[in-house]
Design a binder for these strands. Structure first.
Lengths: 137, 137
DNA sequence: GTAACTGCAAACGATTTGCAATCTC
DNA sequence: GAGATTGCAAATCGTTTGCAGTTAC
């Protein structure tokens, strides 16, 4: 991992697990999956490692909803998220903002904008289908 | 408040307090402020009332950062937030997404997009000034 | 060898809940 | 008067921390 961080089996396992997850798992889900390979690993280690990965730009974090746990993203590249309000499924998307609009904020707000996140909400195909069923009832 | 909800003194106080707050307070801050008027009010009531206000579209909620408490917004009208990564100050802004881009998502992702939030991060003037001082050291 | 890392258990903050007493409509 | 609402205390959930033992470099 470089950065003068030690590559322990536990960290390797967390790294591998996250790399293999395309579903934005919560820390608890990562823990559960990692345990398949490293049975003795504890929550603290997973939480610590995930935080480290985010800090060093190797992973991203996101909140799918207000009352929910932090989810982790195997990529830290700038992108946005589309969250299903029904099942919580998260889908990566690229929306992005108009650079001109961003530049204007720097002058109009006295803030220096360094980045942003867009969280879109909607219903995935499956949940939308269920909605239709319920409406008929 | 209509909607067949009872207007108790506690709810009135929470409503008034939030209406008078333009700084996106956390539930704990709302509690503290409400207590100036209704000393005996408990956390549960404030939390319950704030959740109710959000549910019924009378207030908005937002997370300024990943590890932070939910903040409340006296308006539920669609708008975005610019959060200072230094002091946590939140500033309301209007950025919005391109309607065409949104429409395209509906076809490309099989999601029905119903809404979105943009959270911008940056440094407010004060924190930016402090950064400059530190850089010199 | 030594500083970094781990696991455990305890601590933590934010938020929710069960419940009996109390109010609003 | 009936059912909604309150306050309290306890419970819960996600996450962090202290610390003694272990390990990667």
């Amino acid at each position: 991992m470089a950065d003068d961080l030690r590559l322990t089996p536990q960290r390797q396992a967390v790294l591998d697990t996250l790399a293999a997850s395309d579903d934005h798992p919560t820390a608890a889900q990562v823990l559960e999956r990692v345990r398949a390979h490293v049975p003795g690993i504890g929550p603290a280690t997973v939480y610590r490692t995930l935080a480290l990965l985010v800090e060093t730009g190797r992973a991203g974090e996101l909140r799918a909803g207000e009352g929910q746990a932090i989810r982790y993203d195997r990529t830290a590249t700038r992108h946005d998220h589309l969250v299903c309000t029904g099942c919580g499924r998260v889908c990566d998307v690229q929306v992005g903002l108009d650079p001109d609009a961003l530049r204007e904020l720097n002058t109009s707000t006295s803030f220096t904008v360094t980045g942003y996140d867009v969280r879109l909400h909607g219903r995935c195909a499956r949940c939308a289908a269920q909605d239709t069923v319920k409406e008929r009832a």
